[in-house]
Design a protein around this nucleic acid. Structure first.
Length: 666
DNA sequence: TGTGACACTTAGAAAACCCCGG
DNA sequence: CCGGGGTTTTCTAAGTGTCACA
């Protein structure tokens, strides 16, 4: 009855205040009851079921709804033929819950220290399919003879064969590592026989693989759809989890399939076999009182634990480097979103005290203590050049790359004078992912003098900052501001640069293409600062040429359209105000305008693409730029958000989309 | 004070997808 | 409708930073 609806509404409000587990649900329920007409039986039935389920800590409205509809239809078969009624009802309930949950999403209470969640339920990771043995007509040859390999050896051989088109297989280290690990998978007989990789012929295996790839590309629509649907079913089953009150997407719910290790750059372990992961290798993490995921038939998990101080759902140890791998949530999740927000808030706090900190390290450049001087110079690099911290790495385990604290003397060259500037430092080293950092930077006299001092009596291979490491640096930083570490400078400098560049470059009266060009240029300034590079696309020159020729074609069309317009105008003069001729003039005018617009758009695009040849914008956009800056800019410039963020970026930054006003300042 | 395990963010390449012009 | 080129998504390697422990 009506009184009960009001009662439920009040109960919802009360629970909301009290911060109880089911508060969101009850609140929604109360509001829904309040609004729903008595005559809406389906809705009321849903609510009844909802109430029942509320006791079973399944709290996500959307998934509830999905599971409820078949039920509703089974009870009210008559509605199956009344799609519109059902759809209207479904839509109503869905929108209602979605809005309600959205508005409450960012306002829920925080948990006590270290606790990341209270409830976590998932289906466990998805395992890659079993190895399919080669068909009988595909052979491996050794020394010209067909050799039928054992299943294990065959699988690994195929990993190699699939990579034959790749540069990896030309590298000595890769080949040797692969061969060493491959032989471990062989039977004794195979090992006795196969002793030389250069005598192996993987040609048929490789051809089979290429053929498979081609076949998949050439598949007709229906077959593609079948595959797509099968994939979708996997996503539906394994791709989501229930974390507290939310149904969240999981980021990487698939166990990494076996293969050959693809380390970047001159990685000493490239080519080693990355082994197949079994359920027996996997640790499951979930909530106490949740349904524990079932291991695949005939298997068991390595361990099931209930640790709510971490955010991963499953983990295993990878065999090549011995490191842990985790299954975690998608960036769109509340958990990740809040962490992201926090990151930018720390960076904004740095903004308010960065002047003080800069003054401090300028002072420290004169310190009597060598450690402090080194720390000051390192900090100067991190702040001005946005270098990474540079943790030490185990030698021989990874490619030889460095960051700030791990710079060695051979990575910089000092010039008293270079290209018209005094005190120039030339940097040349490989950073993360073996991306080369090359830069010539004029520095202050004091920094320069210190660097000379640090280089004294050292040889290539010696640390530039021999008294410093990231631990020491971060300890100092956190004493200057709570939560401050070296990487915060990258976030801060990236975001402040974007804001600054947007202010400088954008013009409210420009057209949309120009606005977007200035946004991309601001983004580019950040990518350059952070040294985010990419391999120029293989088809770059070709596609640039294509674009240019398209522009040419349009130019010709424009000339033509212009002359047609002039002609039409002349005729109008001759036959004063013939309505048909006037319309023609208008049409021609439009055509000219359209051509001009298209040419302009393409030219802007060409500029943008040329400037972007070797620069990757994605990384900074996704990890360093406070999305609120971009969202506020879009609002102020009246540029639709989807012009700068695609769907998944908008999902990831949902927190910022929800809260950003036009007056946001980083 | 150093060290390794662990958890989590950041990164570019490659695969998959999708859209547009011929 | 189809192919190719650009965009998006996926994949997983490679960093950062903290903490417990010796």
């Amino acid at each position: 009855g009506k009184e009960n609806r009001v009662l439920f509404y009040l109960l919802g409000l009360l629970l909301l205040q009290a911060g109880k587990e089911n508060r969101v649900l009850f609140h929604c329920l109360g509001l829904l009851l309040l609004q729903a007409g008595k005559e809406n039986r389906v809705l009321f039935h849903c609510l009844g079921l909802l109430l029942l389920l509320a006791g079973h800590c399944i709290l996500d409205a959307h998934s509830l709804l999905l599971s409820l509809w078949p039920h509703v239809i089974s009870i009210y078969p008559v509605f199956e033929n009344q799609c519109s009624t059902l759809n209207v009802c479904a839509e109503y309930v869905h929108t209602f819950f979605s809005n309600m949950l959205l508005s409450l999403r960012w306002e829920e209470a925080k948990y006590e220290d270290g606790v990341k969640w209270k409830f976590l339920e998932h289906k466990g990771p998805h395992f890659p399919p079993e190895y399919q043995p080669l068909p009988d007509n595909v052979h491996f040859y050794y020394n010209g003879n067909i050799v039928k390999l054992s299943l294990a050896a065959e699988e690994v051989a195929l990993f190699y064969a699939q990579m034959l088109d790749h540069e990896y297989t030309t590298k000595e280290v890769f080949r040797n590592n692969f061969f060493k690990d491959w032989r471990k998978e062989m039977t004794l007989e195979e090992r006795m026989l196969i002793t030389d990789l250069s005598k192996c012929d993987f040609g048929e295996l490789h051809a089979m693989h290429v053929e498979k790839v081609e076949a998949r590309k050439a598949m007709n629509k229906e077959d593609k759809l079948v595959i797509k649907e099968a994939n979708q079913r996997i996503v539906d089953e394994y791709g989501f989890c229930m974390l507290d009150n939310h149904r969240e997407r999981i980021g990487n719910f698939k166990i990494e399939p076996p293969g050959l290790f693809r380390g970047r750059g001159e990685h000493p372990k490239q080519g080693y076999l990355k082994k197949r992961i079994q359920p027996e290798d996997v640790i499951i993490n979930c909530g106490k009182g949740s349904r524990v995921p079932e291991p695949p038939a005939g298997h068991r998990w390595k361990e099931v634990r209930y640790d709510n101080t971490v955010t991963w759902l499953a983990s295993w140890t990878e065999n090549v480097q011995g490191s842990c791998k985790y299954i975690m949530l998608n960036p769109s999740s509340k958990l990740k979103g809040e962490k992201d927000w926090e990151k930018y808030e720390v960076a904004r706090r740095l903004k308010s005290c960065v002047d003080r900190i800069r003054l401090q390290y300028q002072q420290d450049l004169k310190s009597k203590q060598m450690v402090n001087r080194q720390r000051a110079v390192a900090l100067y690099f991190i702040d001005v050049l946005a270098l990474r911290a540079g943790n030490e790495k185990e030698e021989g385990e990874t490619a030889d790359t460095v960051g700030c604290c791990s710079l060695r003397v051979e990575h910089i060259t000092l010039y008293d004078r270079l290209e018209g500037s005094d005190c120039v430092v030339e940097f040349d080293f490989l950073g993360k992912d073996c991306i080369r950092y090359y830069n010539k930077v004029p520095v202050t006299k004091r920094v320069f003098k210190n660097l000379k001092l640090f280089m004294e009596n050292k040889e290539p291979g010696d640390d530039l900052f021999d008294r410093l490491n990231t631990g020491l640096l971060n300890k100092h930083l956190s004493s200057l501001m709570p939560g401050l570490t070296a990487k915060v400078f990258r976030t801060y400098n990236a975001s402040i640069t974007l804001q600054e560049q947007l202010r400088k470059l954008s013009n409210g009266t420009a057209n949309q293409a120009e606005k977007l060009l200035s946004y991309n240029r601001a983004n580019r300034a950040v990518a350059v600062l952070c040294n985010h590079q990419r391999a120029p696309p293989k088809t770059f020159d070709q596609s640039m040429a294509n674009l240019q020729s398209k522009i040419e074609v349009r130019r010709e069309q424009l000339t033509l359209a212009k002359s047609e317009l002039t002609l039409a105008k002349k005729e109008v003069k001759g036959h004063c105000s013939d309505s048909k001729l006037l319309a023609l003039v208008e049409r021609k005018k439009k055509a000219v305008q359209r051509c001009e617009e298209q040419i302009m758009k393409m030219e802007v695009q060409a500029t943008d693409r040329e400037e972007n040849k070797q620069i990757a914008l994605g990384t900074s956009k996704l990890n360093y730029l406070d999305p609120r800056i971009s969202i506020a800019w879009c609002k102020n410039m009246e540029v639709p958000l989807e012009k700068i963020y695609n769907k998944s970026q908008r999902d990831k930054f949902a927190w910022a989309v929800d809260m950003t006003q036009t007056d946001f300042i980083f």
